[in-house]
Simulated assay, not measured.
Amino acid sequence: MLHFPKFTQIRNSNEIDVFAGNYFRCSGFNVNRDYYETNQVFAIYCHGNMIGGFVLGTGETLRTLEVFASNEHRDNLYRQVQESKPHTEMCCFWMAPDIRKNTRLNFFIWLCVAYALWAYGTPQLIFGTNSVRLAALYSATPKCHLLHGDYLNHKQTFIFTGPRKDCLVGVAQILIFPEEWEKGKVLVFNYFSSPAGATRADHIKVERDIWKPIHAARVKDGKMKAWILYEMEFPFGASMPYNMATADVYTDMKEYLAPWFEGYFKKVHPGKDMNQLIQQTQAVTTLQKGEVRMILDRLDWK
């Protein structure tokens, strides 16, 4: 007998409790009950069990910015959001661990996300994550823009925006992207600008003093293929959104998605406060955007 999954908006207190418990187990985040009760909560069921879900929020306070942006950047991000088209945030997304490798149910859950965004969302969407895996998926979509990247609680965080009209295409890209994970090499481009009072020389110094030794250790351990630091010479001018860049090179997506952050900080900079080193970096450079690209072909790279 075939069992079809069910997609529904939930309002019942008991169902919201189940949703909240599942989301906490999957993400480690406790969410204020008021947030669930004042926004739209959606769940996917299979065989009577809740297997996934997400929340669409449209309030003045965006959980995406509260959770994934540091205090020093949050006000500016709110201004950027408020000055543009009305935003709907997609957050509290979760999928039961035993479902993640089930292609059929995975496909269904992402289609539910696309439908809900199309049916209930505003023209512009905003969403965030501290999962490098999800960030890589979001980055693969054609119209997705990295609004902000940060480091909070020893983890990288990512905030994305994108137009609602392209959400179906974006979901299709997410579903196709994993099939390419094991093919070719992976290039991660990070674009930086200099905040007021900081110079390129300041950025170069923190890259060489803090980050280059970390990446050198990763390359030595076979956890990374290469790391490159770039300085932009042309074009130039106030309209340029960035003036520095780095490229991280990985053998495949499995290598890219492997956790490394906290472990290598302790290994390479023993006895130093990781948060202070991150703050030292953020004081002299701002991550403007990141891109994850797959190498499809090449002539001279072994």
Rank of each mutant, 00 (worst) to 15 (best):
N39S: 10
A69R: 00
D221W: 09
L277P: 09
N39Y: 05
P163E: 11
K85H: 08
T141R: 14
S193G: 08
N190T: 12
G170Y: 03
L62D: 04
P123C: 07
W118A: 12
Q9G: 04
I109V: 13
I204R: 09
Y256K: 12
Y120K: 12
Q173C: 14
F7Q: 07
M294G: 06
A116V: 02
V81D: 00
F4T: 13
T246Y: 07
W181M: 09
W181R: 02
M253C: 11
L175P: 00
K85P: 00
L152I: 15
L299S: 11
G52W: 03
N71H: 12
I278T: 11
V171K: 02
F192M: 07
M95H: 03
I210Q: 03
T61M: 11
L134I: 08
F42E: 03
V55F: 11
E83K: 14
L56C: 06
A114Q: 02
Q288M: 14
M224L: 14
K302G: 03
D75Q: 15
A20V: 02
A116C: 08
L152Q: 06
E182L: 13
S193W: 06
L125P: 00
V219H: 06
F29T: 02
A135I: 01
K302V: 13
D17A: 15
N12V: 06
T141H: 06
T199Q: 11
P213V: 04
F42Y: 15
A119I: 07
D297L: 15
Y242V: 00
G184E: 01
M240I: 14
G184V: 01
Q280G: 05
F261N: 11
L168R: 13
S239G: 04
I174Y: 08
D34I: 08
N275W: 13
R218F: 05
A217H: 03
P123M: 07
I295S: 07
F127R: 01
T8K: 15
I44A: 09
S131C: 04
H154K: 11
F107P: 00
H3F: 07
G128D: 05
T161I: 10
Y264P: 06
L299T: 11
V55N: 04
F19G: 00
V219T: 12
T286E: 08
M95P: 01
M224P: 02
D252G: 09
T64P: 01
Y78I: 05
Y242E: 04
I228M: 09
F42P: 00
I176V: 08
P259A: 09
L105P: 07
I126E: 03
D150Q: 05
N102W: 01
